[in-house]
Design a protein around this nucleic acid. Structure first.
Length: 258
DNA sequence: CATAATGTTGTCAC
DNA sequence: CGTGACAACATTAT
């Protein structure tokens, strides 16, 4: 995105689903038109376009999305919620699978907005000591909810939590206070291992639309996630799926005892 | 052929 | 702090 978008000026904006936005569509179009994309960064799960004169366009791909840069003259995709045309004829489109969020924020709002103000550190920047402090300060909390809490650590989603917990050999409902020092270190290392692996493999969502929106390929990406009934790569026990809050967790009942 | 279940994200109320 | 409700689909299973 940095290579394709940096220094480009926005000439046309279209938003086809107003519910994605934090402000009315007309206001968003007016705000964006004529501004230049200075650079692109990431804040947790939010992609952040830094605009000039100063403003911020944030995208959260939610439950999966098809984000495309198209060459000058190339056809538009059949469906999208956001379209941005750029001065040299290229453009950006974003199609959300189901939920997705577009936010337009000033610098001041970026610091106070509930969705962006209190994001925790990036999991790959977090040292073992910082992670231990974080975990030790909330002994009664479940291990899974800590890594999904964006205000503690930002960027880990449910799809990655399954494999992190499996790699650390932790049951999702273990309390943080019950972890030994060794388990805490393993937990921290598992986060690194799974997230770095995901980056290397290009992300779990890679072929989501290419495969018609089904999740069959998630099974091959994941170690235990979405592999209910298949055998655990460590011990061969069948992977099970349990309800953890309103989401599911896939785990090996042998390697991750309660 | 129509319903139900499902999955990733975010907030909010209890 | 955990849980469930809810919200923009699209696909598969029943």
């Amino acid at each position: 995105m940095q290579r394709s978008l940096a220094s480009r000026r926005i000439t046309l904006v279209e938003v086809t689903q107003e519910k994605c936005l934090n402000i009315p569509t007309g206001a968003a179009v007016e705000l964006l038109r004529g501004r230049t994309i200075e650079r692109v960064s990431r804040l947790g799960k939010w992609l952040c376009l830094h605009l000039q004169p100063e403003y911020f366009l944030l995208l959260n791909l939610g439950m999966g999305a098809d984000l495309r840069h198209r060459a000058p003259g190339a056809a538009l995709p059949a469906k999208y919620q956001l379209r941005i045309d750029l001065d040299e004829g290229s453009g950006l489109t974003c199609r959300f699978w189901w939920f997705g969020y577009i936010r337009l924020l000033s610098a001041a709002e970026l610091a106070t907005h509930p969705e962006t103000a209190k994001l925790g550190p990036d999991p790959l920047q977090l040292t073992a000591e910082q992670f231990a402090t974080l975990a030790r300060s909330r002994p009664q909390r479940n291990v899974k909810s800590l890594i999904l809490d964006q205000s503690r650590v930002s960027g880990i989603g449910n799809a990655y939590a399954h494999d992190i917990l499996f790699t650390a050999r932790l049951h999702p409902q273990r309390k943080l206070g019950s972890l030994s020092d060794e388990e805490l270190i393993a937990f921290h290392e598992a986060i690194r291992y799974v997230m770095e692996r995901a980056i290397k493999l290009g992300g779990i969502e890679q072929d989501f639309f290419g495969t018609g929106g089904n999740m069959n390929h998630w099974e091959s990406f994941c170690i235990v996630g979405y592999r209910e009934g298949k055998s655990c790569p460590r011990c061969g026990t069948a992977v099970v799926r349990i309800k953890t809050g309103s989401t599911a967790t896939f785990l090996c009942p042998m390697c991750q005892p309660a």
